[in-house]
Amino acid sequence: MTNLITIFLSMALINNFILVRFLGLCPFFGVSKKLSNALSMGVAVTLVMFIATVATWIINRYILMPFEVEYMDIVIYILVIASLVQIVEMAIKRTNLTLYNALGIYLPLITTNCAVLGITLINATEAYSLLESIACSLGGGIGFTLVLIMMSGIREKLELADSPRSMKGLPVALLTAMLLGLTFLGFGGMI
């Protein structure tokens, strides 16, 4: 149990996907202008990460390992994740329209997000068990959402701030990201 919590916290804070591993940077700047959008994106990413982790773990353990074709993992994972997202999107669209509208364009968008592929590859290289993989994916997803929400909150306020003309928009967002990254470095000695 302690092991699971360690993995979860490590993925959420210490090895945060965006600020420490530099994965999923496009949504970090692309979708962090509004808090509501950031939340939808974060939830969608966490959901897809969780599903992708479970599916790829099963495939890795019962197909790739017995046939000794682990080196094909990237290709196979992309294939599996893409079809999974397709299925999830179809299911949500036809059963819960409110949720579908809330997730909107983000669900199909993250099919090829590097954070999603990243978490499956991390799980494979660390040789986690199923429970550990799930803890890892949830931690990664929640850490991703957390940073996205923090960033969008700051950026919403920054829109109103009187920043120099040359710094408006992306430049000041990049500086904010740097400061956020520095604060997350502080978690380094926690575990």
Binding site: F67, E68, V69, L79, V80, S83, I87, M90, A91
Partner: peptide, 28 residues
Amino acid sequence: TTVLVLTGIGFACAAIIYCVNIVLPHKV
């Protein structure tokens, strides 16, 4: 085996998507 595994997974994915498409209610 690589070729077989990759094609197999590809076909399996396609089959699953097709099945899900049929099983899910079409008229919402």
